[in-house]
Design a protein around this nucleic acid. Structure first.
Lengths: 143, 143
DNA sequence: CGCTAACTGAGACTCGGTATCATCTGCCCT
DNA sequence: AGGGCAGATGATACCGAGTCTCAGTTAGCG
């Protein structure tokens, strides 16, 4: 996969410079499939001797989150993690075993929000919805 | 309000000792109406000269969260906050202006989760659902 | 009253994330 | 092509939330 990843493309499109460090980071993200933490990337970069600084990892993740090229999410443990994803609003199911993640479409969710607005009188303008469970693959392995 | 608060009662019922520090903390929680951070409580305790240590605040919040007497939630800013609440599973709408919080019942949510399980094949066993918006009172004030 | 396990506060520590700053490097302009 | 500069970088210091440790205190039972 030498052509730009979706994540890298998001950076390009937004007019950010194509630098070595960013390239390394987007590659690392592409190489992972599922949720990962900032610390994971730092460790990856370190073990591969990419010479990418900690600060840069955080900065890049920040930029990517702004561009909605990655989604920041909170694991049940309280840790912060990220998932690469399409830059449209949606949600994720994250496998609590292997960390794999899948996008979730509306599924009637909008209606629920509207319902809640009605009953509470609140005007809801932001929400956090994260689902955790076991993916089909992990469910097969009886542990 | 000198009778035990709901929060205090949860501690009592679970067989924890009625100590001064815990009393102070549950009072502080009762005095707040809405979401608060651990740091808020520490600051409250400090300014009221209650002589309650930082560690104790965290420990007590931890216990209360275990008992589901308070709910731990993540603000959009990434901060961790807490809300006092009934010890049954439910969700919250939090006002992004004043921090007031209100419980939310099912509202069709279970059906959505089931729907998502169907379409993704994941077996969902945990989720995080937090709603942020402006409460009726804050909506009235045109800022 | 006295004992003991539960609890406490102080402070050291860890760790995720941010700020600073001198240096470096894409990239545009000519 | 190459000069210049804003944007990007890495090292390092820093910050603040949360945890751990430990010696001293205290609730509450007998």
């Amino acid at each position: 996969m030498t052509e730009p990843t979706t994540v890298q493309a998001a950076l390009d499109d937004a007019g950010y410079r194509r630098t070595g460090a960013r390239r390394s980071i987007t590659d690392l993200i592409a190489a992972r499939n599922g949720a990962f933490t900032a610390a994971d990337l730092v460790a990856d970069a370190r073990s591969k001797r990419l010479g990418v600084g900690r600060a840069t990892v955080f900065r890049t993740l920040d930029v990517l989150a702004d561009l909605h090229a990655v989604e920041r999410l909170d694991l049940p443990s309280g840790e912060h993690a990220y998932v690469a994803c399409e830059p449209v609003h949606h949600h994720h199911v994250v496998c609590s075993d292997c960390g794999a993640s899948q996008d979730v479409d509306d599924a009637g969710w909008r209606a629920v929000v509207r319902e809640i607005e009605q009953t509470t009188g609140y005007r809801i303008d932001d929400h956090r919805l994260e689902l955790f469970g076991r993916c089909p693959a992990c469910r097969k392995t009886i542990d």
